[in-house]
Design a protein around this nucleic acid. Structure first.
Length: 740
RNA sequence: GCCGGAGUGGCGGAAUGGCAGACGCAGGGGACUCAAAAUCCCCCGGCCUCACGGCCGUGAGGGUUCGACUCCCUCCUCCGGCACCA
């Protein structure tokens, strides 16, 4: 899209942006080992996407099937969901159609159970692990077959509640379900409603997934006229098509239990279908006519043959599965919400999928010896001719690798998530032209010790990367199953988007980004670094504002002033006593900064440094500390501040007569005893309300504290003449007197 | 709608069962200066009070606890994800 808008070839555009971003990282003083740099648009990288694809194809982990896409007739191209606004193309305004295209998929569902189990051993936040677990969506239930009159194949449904089987009053199919067409055409004679069925199914399939899935959405349906037989009772049940039934969850067909499922209930009420409760909490089940919503699963089963009286729970489900299996009507089954990963893109700027279409041999893989399949250059980007790869004669023409006959190259390219699913392995040696990754290097370095990424990647990228790692492990290139041992998710930077008028995440595609160049020019890289880290905790989202950036600049000025004064003091002289107020402050600050930095809380580390700078300035003023202690304290200030403001601190360090680079100076150590104060303020509460404070020696015991509190003139009026029923004492922090 | 998260002074935030508002920004007052800028010092949640001090206050309501910003329940608002933005 950027290439179309700017008229610049995507390669040129991408490489220019890489160069610019490297420059910006450099001007911020961010250090990387650029000898390990890679670009996923470089053939030396994407050839391994193709190699991996071929290995997955061999293992049946890559396959083709039909899937609906958003099609803009004006642009003659497929649109991303994001490019569809109110059912129209964002660029041309044309009404978007849903079209079925045969597309390539990765069979991530084959690993669903292992991807779920693998989460347990990861040092990731529960937040992200919960999101992944829910996305994979494991549920235990059963598949049940319902014979349909006039059809050879029974209808198979998946249900998580086989215990409610006696409550089924209808079956419903996704409009995409093959049985829809089977019912319309009929086994002997076409259904009298064939035209109606086809029209309804066609219309619903055009609705977006979001519309269909929404719980509050309008329930739409059509009775096909076909009848299914209840596998246990033999009752004849109507077979409907319903918009809320999704083709790729379960089997694409559901058994309707309106009495105990809210969506089924709404559908039944809208369509005038029967409601039959099979759980009761009272002596009798609720009266269906009086129900206004589905009844929860609870109480005991009723109207359910010999399951009657079984309480809601695993036992009821187990009993139901046993009966269903004994009657040959189905079997217990674990279901997943996870769907296979659609990797096909009908776009130019991606990794070409290494396949050839031959009229005689079908879809044939490109041999490894011919990789990489390169993106051609003889293409135009005008935005109205669909996938540019289809214009390139040189690219399209390729004899069949199998029979040598005339054939045509696959024009789909891969989702860029394929690139990002294994790039961390390529950093080990991006120049290796003989293999994707060297197993010896991988064995030495993997897994990634600490991965850092935005929370917006909590599900898709992180799940795809975990899946691809397992595939690469099966290929014998890495020994680990999980790529990222520890994960830290930074929150997003948000900012007002003038286009939408809303506060949104800052991103290229939304166009609300801020360039650091101007700020660096005005206040220097160290001020920008300091301010950015001081904004707030990195795991939370922060709204961008430049309000406080001048304060960072001022603080650095104060550090310079304080250190200059300290380093102007004579160098020789006695060290002086170990235990002074400044020494305690110094040890306490080293501890706070070290501990805060270890949990990535740079904002509180910087706050500690601000307090420390003020304390040091006051000590310089008071003149009670030795020059050696003051100089040492200034050295510690520069070292602790160095990771945040490396340029200035290093310069001040060397200007002060210190030798070497500050980066090489060791991180200061703290003494645990000296990092704590001698005296503490003990808060005294009476009945939970703060009534006074006692200045006590650290380690003061409960009985001494109670005695001092009783004596204190501020506290006495609150306890005088009352009985102390209880005292809660937290050493060095608090004393709570509960009085009557 | 579903899954996940967040909500604390004018603003960014601190405190993860124990002093609510550290640190900073903005604002007000003062010092320095012929003046300004820069710098430094003081004040800075609300209400009552001359003051000492008291009461209220962490999105709303309820609960657990000696004690709740923190834990539990219900609700509201905002943000992220929802499979083609990556």
């Amino acid at each position: 899209n950027a290439a179309i808008a700017s008229g610049i070839h995507p390669r040129e555009y991408t490489l220019a942006n890489i160069a610019r971003m490297k420059e910006q990282l450099g001007s911020l003083g961010v250090l990387y080992d650029w000898s390990k740099e890679l670009a996923s648009c470089d053939p030396s990288y994407y050839r391994w996407n193709q190699w991996l694809f071929l290995r997955m194809w061999e293992r049946d982990l890559a396959y083709r099937k039909k899937a609906p896409v958003n099609w803009c007739p004006g642009c003659r191209t497929v649109l991303a969901n994001e490019q569809v606004v109110d059912g129209r193309c964002e660029r041309s305004g044309d009404t978007v159609e849903l079209r079925d295209l045969t597309q390539w998929f990765f069979r991530i569902t084959a690993h669903a159970d292992r991807l779920l189990a693998g989460l347990d051993g990861l040092d990731w936040s529960e937040r992200v692990k919960t999101m992944q677990r829910n996305w994979i969506g494991r549920s235990e239930g059963a598949e049940v077959d319902f014979p349909v009159e006039g059809l050879r194949e029974p209808l198979r449904v998946f249900t998580t509640r086989p215990d409610t089987l006696y409550g089924v009053t209808f079956l419903a199919l996704a409009p995409e379900h093959p049985a829809v067409e089977a019912i319309a055409s009929g086994s002997a004679t076409p259904s009298p409603k064939a035209a109606e069925i086809r029209a309804f199914a066609g219309r619903v399939r055009k609705e977006s997934r979001l519309e269909r899935e929404a719980e509050g959405a309008k329930k739409e349906g059509l009775d096909t006229g076909a009848k299914a037989l209840h596998p246990l009772t033999g009752e004849r049940l109507p077979v409907w098509i319903a918009n809320f039934v999704l083709p790729d969850y379960g089997t694409g067909a559901i058994m309707g239990v309106p009495a105990h499922d809210q969506r089924d209930f709404e559908f039944a009420r809208a369509m005038g279908l029967a409601v039959r409760p099979v759980y009761r909490t009272e002596a009798a089940p609720p009266d269906p006519a009086a129900m206004t919503e589905a009844a929860p699963h609870g109480g005991v089963l009723c109207h359910s043959g010999d399951w009657d009286g079984t309480p809601n729970g695993p036992e009821a489900i187990a009993k139901a599965v046993a009966t269903i299996e004994a009657r040959g009507a189905g079997h217990g089954k674990v279901g997943f919400r996870l769907r296979d990963w659609l990797i096909s893109r009908q776009r130019y700027w991606g990794t070409p999928i290494p396949a050839v279409h031959c009229a005689a041999c079908g879809v044939v893989p490109v041999p490894d010896s011919e990789l990489p399949v390169l993106l051609p250059d003889d293409v135009q980007f005008r935005g109205a001719e669909g996938n540019p790869l289809e214009q390139s004669e040189a690219f399209l023409k390729r004899p069949c690798p199998k029979c040598g006959g005339e054939a045509r190259r696959e024009t789909d390219t891969m989702d860029t998530f394929v690139d990002s699913s294994w790039y961390y392995l390529r950093f080990l040696d991006p120049s290796d032209s003989t293999r994707m990754v060297d197993p010896a290097r991988a064995a030495r370095w993997m897994p990634v010790d600490q991965y850092i990424g935005g929370i917006e990647h909590a599900i898709l990228h992180l799940l795809y990367a975990r899946f691809i790692c397992r595939v690469i492990q099966e290929l014998g290139l890495v020994s680990v199953e999980e790529p990222f041992a520890r994960l830290f998710n930074q929150g997003m930077i948000t900012k007002l988007n003038p286009k939408s008028g809303r506060i949104e995440k800052m991103s290229k595609s939304r166009g609300n980004t801020v360039s650091p160049d101007e700020l660096i020019e005005r206040l220097g890289a160290d001020s920008v670094r300091l301010y950015t880290l001081f904004l707030g905790p990195p795991e939370k989202e922060v709204e961008w504002s430049e309000e406080g950036v001048a304060g960072a600049f001022r603080f650095l000025g104060r550090v310079h002033e304080t250190c200059s004064r300290a380093f102007a003091l004579p160098e020789d002289g006695p060290a002086g006593p170990q235990d002074t107020p400044l020494s305690r402050l110094r040890h306490r600050t080293i501890r706070r900064v070290t501990e805060d930095a270890e949990r990535f809380h740079f904002h509180t580390a910087i706050a500690a440094l601000m307090e420390y700078q003020r304390g040091l300035a006051e000590a310089l003023e008071a003149g009670e500390e030795t020059p050696a202690a003051l100089r040492e304290s200034a050295r510690v200030l520069l070292k602790l501040l160095h990771p945040v403001a490396p340029h200035l601190t290093d310069e001040w360090w060397r200007n002060s007569g210190e030798t070497g680079f500050l980066l090489e100076a060791p991180w200061p150590a703290f003494d645990a005893e000296l990092s704590r104060p001698l005296r503490v303020e003990l808060v005294v509460q009476v009945n939970g309300k703060v009534r006074g404070r006692l200045d006590v020696e650290r380690g003061t015991g409960e009985s001494d504290a109670v005695a001092m509190a009783r004596d204190d003139e501020k506290i006495r009026p609150w306890v005088e003449g009352k009985e102390i029923a209880r005292a809660v004492f937290v050493p060095d922090r608090l004393l709570n007197l509960v009085v009557r």
